[in-house]
Design a binder for these strands. Sequence first.
DNA 1: AACGACAAGATTGTCGACAATATTCAAATA
DNA 2: TATTTGAATATTGTCGACAATCTTGTCGTT
Lengths: 239, 239
Amino acid sequence: MHVKHYYIVYNLLNTALRFTMSIFHENAVTASDKAFFRLRKEIVEGEIPASAKLSETELSTKYEVSRAVVREAINRLESCNLVERKPNVGARVVALSPEGLIELYQVRESLEGMAARLAATNMSDDEVAELKMLLNSQSENIKTTERYYQEAGDLDFHYRIILGSKNNHLINMLVNGLYHLVRMYRVQLGMAGPRVSTAFDEHKHIVQAISNRDPELAEMLMRRHIMYSKNNIEAKLQQ
Amino acid sequence: MHVKHYYIVYNLLNTALRFTMSIFHENAVTASDKAFFRLRKEIVEGEIPASAKLSETELSTKYEVSRAVVREAINRLESCNLVERKPNVGARVVALSPEGLIELYQVRESLEGMAARLAATNMSDDEVAELKMLLNSQSENIKTTERYYQEAGDLDFHYRIILGSKNNHLINMLVNGLYHLVRMYRVQLGMAGPRVSTAFDEHKHIVQAISNRDPELAEMLMRRHIMYSKNNIEAKLQQ
DNA sequence: AACGACAAGATTGTCGACAATATTCAAATA
DNA sequence: TATTTGAATATTGTCGACAATCTTGTCGTT
């Protein structure tokens, strides 16, 4: 009992920021890993702009590694939907478009809805408790803290539910496949939005549904939540 | 008008078999492409058994190409969820497990449900007409033709709806990411099922919903359809 | 006999060079 | 002047060799 409680408290000490950092700072064992992480970071954060050409030789001199590791990094970026590659021509960073964003959010709605549904069944009581406490800690900081932390908190929330689904395909698709692209859109199109307080209420209701072990409701609320985000972003794009 | 009609008839001449072949026989421009397609085929059809180790040197001698192209092929297989790779250790063909199959079908339910929803909005009238005619041609052959064609027909049906969603993320995830794994399970676990006639009725209802431009219903019916398939398979696994 | 350290072998990771393909740009032709 | 041909250049694709890491099996110690 003591141990369990300590565990929960300890986890809460991993604030949203630290947690979010850990998501993206996987441990790189090989040189291709490092190149992959670095390149991904530079693409997501816009240091290498959207639609830019990725020259293998150029990158290999810049990163001081051989072309082979750059090639492998680019290949991995391609499976993350962050770059597009044409045979005998080369690779480009993906172009960001309103249509692409819509498509991305449609897939998110589908997959994260299913994640919430599965999480309602598969999350342990401890994980649900941690999720609740995360929300509590966020509600206290919601006025004082700056926007970046709110962003991180949002990612944290979604990330935990995705992991809570316990479905490896789902987890892989979302974490490795879509979320970096989502982040790229957010960073580069300046999507931080207000919508924090309303989104926070939506988060609370989703957690409540998961806590009640109500898969149908959890899915529906998550889908709505993402749909609202999408609509919010669409509205901003048309300004 | 003439042209349009001719086009539809012509498409119908591409029977389920030919259509399905075309799905998997993409044109390979580079050597890595060929190695990738060949390796994928051998894995899906069980020539290289599940959970088998993939030795780069061994495959490079077998295919008579350099290790680099085998490496790239294996990397691509990894993003298709057909092999798993560990740094400095090597790659193995994925293991087939009942749990893995369940997870796969959960993701399919989510994504193909969304595909049906989007198809109800985004498919052209012509595409809907072709889909209807495809079903008609299948209903005539359903008793006479052998099982393989029914399998192909099923793939064909789902494939058209996926394409009809017009959502590139969705299409890519399903066609390049999940369907070969689905096929691998079907081939290797001998999932062909009867369930043809009932499944066929479900197909008809889904097409009807799409034809009525009813996204909600189309999604719900597609999800149920896949859920039934999953249940059917689960039942067989426990025999 | 069980366990751990160490060496030998095998496999993957990385590199630089060469081959094949695409792009660019200048010259020739209509 | 516009268009096409063709050579020159640059980029990607493929290869074989070497380096780094893991695996295997033997030996020695407890």
